[in-house]
Simulated assay, not measured.
Amino acid sequence: MDFDLPESAAAVREGVLAIAGKYDQEYWSRCDADKRWPEEVWRELVAGGWHALAVPEEFGGGGQGLLELAVALEALAEGGAGGAASFMYLLTPAFGGLTIARHGTREQQEEFLPKIASGELETCFAITEPDAGSNAINISTHARRDGDSFVVNGQKIWISGVERADHMILVTRTVPAAEARPRTAGFTVLLVDLKEAVAEGTLTYQPIPKLGTNTVASSTVFLDDVRVPAERVLGEVDMGFAVLWDILNPERILAAAGGVGSGELVLSLACEYATERAPFGKPIGTNQGIAFPLARVKAQVELARLMTYKAAWLWDRGRPCGSEANIAKLTAADAAWQAADRAFQTYGGMAYSLEYPISRMFRDARIAKNIPVAEELVLAHIAQHELGLPKSY
């Protein structure tokens, strides 16, 4: 058993931290306030190939795995990005690069992966619906076969990155949920040309005003007779659930990596403040009422990191990792939230001031307990699959 990071992952961490170190908290706060994608950071990640780590080398990528992608995301978050880092590594590097490399046909790989590796093409992912949040089985967006194409109708919600993506990885039903046997049958995953659909007026979207994570917009998406060529199916028609889980588990693992990095960042800011702030003649960090809660959060972050790396390691080897991905997401999201909460308390009233980044990190950390899967559903999964308790949903 070896707990050292592989040399490849260690090099990734060093490289991404070097980029993150160029951008201070004022930069990230401006991006958040302006609701602006961190374009300067993204361009540097693309120029160094840090976004295409999981794209095979033959298509211009790094030829590495989910572990390296998770380490990169963690480093970007820890280096200053905080919660903004997660979407920078989920939207195109994971939803696009990782999924197409794993499930795309040779033709799809040759068409999409070089463009992803060069930064020419970006993607987003659409599964959630107004009446089917965490219950993906009940999605109703329907794709009907029409000759050499599928015609798609439906609605998605909370879809992040639509405004800048070129293609959407879209989860549809080709067999209605009520007719599917088993219930996980009848899913088909499609690669939708967003620019084309928007230009034709068959796909429209409306950004949703949000509390946090404002460096990327999240939108409601309306699909009205969107036509998708049959050669743009990812995986097999009606058998898309296998592709879906190979998207959702990495999503949870990468979300966990973002939580670990965000927790480290917030802890460093809190400890710096607790060392400098001395209203009673000595740093407030000397008080156990301040120090002990921060120390406990540090322990939580370290435990979350271990499970995140384990889950990524399993996924890279093609081994079952559902429970590990869920546990990593659960523990990392809670650690990031506890870090933000304790940092808020450490800063006292100044945490409420927008002059400091703590309020932004506090807002960003809270949503991680709900997405990409609510912690209650994670606990239900653990209870059923790890403890053998009856299914509760």
Rank of each mutant, 00 (worst) to 15 (best):
F362G: 00
A328P: 05
P176D: 02
V297K: 05
L98Y: 10
M1Q: 14
P283E: 12
A230R: 07
G201S: 02
S118E: 12
S160T: 13
P229F: 07
L67K: 11
D225G: 11
Q64T: 04
R232Y: 08
L211V: 14
A333I: 00
G281N: 08
P390I: 02
P372V: 00
S8C: 00
T141F: 02
A54V: 12
P176V: 00
R319I: 14
R181T: 10
S29T: 13
N287Y: 15
G82I: 11
P250V: 06
I127T: 13
G60Q: 01
A274K: 02
G79C: 07
G281I: 05
Y393F: 15
A199E: 10
V151N: 03
T213W: 13
A339G: 05
A255M: 08
D246M: 09
L190P: 11
A255S: 11
G82V: 11
E26M: 06
Y273K: 13
Y273W: 14
Q206W: 07
V171Y: 13
L190Q: 12
A368I: 02
E14F: 08
A242L: 15
H381I: 09
I284M: 14
V260T: 10
I157K: 15
R360Q: 07
S149I: 03
D166I: 04
I208P: 00
L303T: 11
I247C: 06
E231P: 03
P6H: 06
T128A: 06
E120I: 04
E276Y: 10
C124Q: 04
R305E: 13
D225H: 13
T286N: 14
R183L: 08
C31N: 10
E264G: 12
S218I: 06
V71M: 10
P56W: 05
K329L: 15
R43M: 03
S118N: 08
P176C: 00
V297H: 07
G261E: 02
Q338A: 09
E236M: 04
G48C: 00
K22I: 05
A54Y: 09
G49N: 02
E200M: 09
W313P: 02
F59Q: 04
G119R: 11
R173N: 01
W245E: 12
R342W: 14
D334P: 04
S359W: 14
E272T: 12
L234E: 01
E375T: 15
A365F: 06
R296D: 08
V221T: 01
I367C: 00
V12G: 05
Y309N: 09
A126G: 13
P209Y: 09
G348N: 04
E57C: 05
E26F: 07
A143D: 08
E40Q: 13
A380H: 05
T220D: 15
S323H: 14
S86K: 15
A54E: 05
A199F: 09
I169D: 03
T184W: 10
K22N: 12
P114R: 11
R164V: 06
T141H: 03
F112R: 10
I284E: 11
Y352G: 12
M307D: 14
W50L: 13
F222V: 10
C124V: 04
K22F: 07
V243L: 00
N135E: 06
T213C: 07
N287G: 13
P114Y: 11
I116A: 11
S268T: 01
E58I: 02
Q345M: 14
A101C: 01
F362L: 03
A81E: 05
C271Y: 15
Q300R: 14
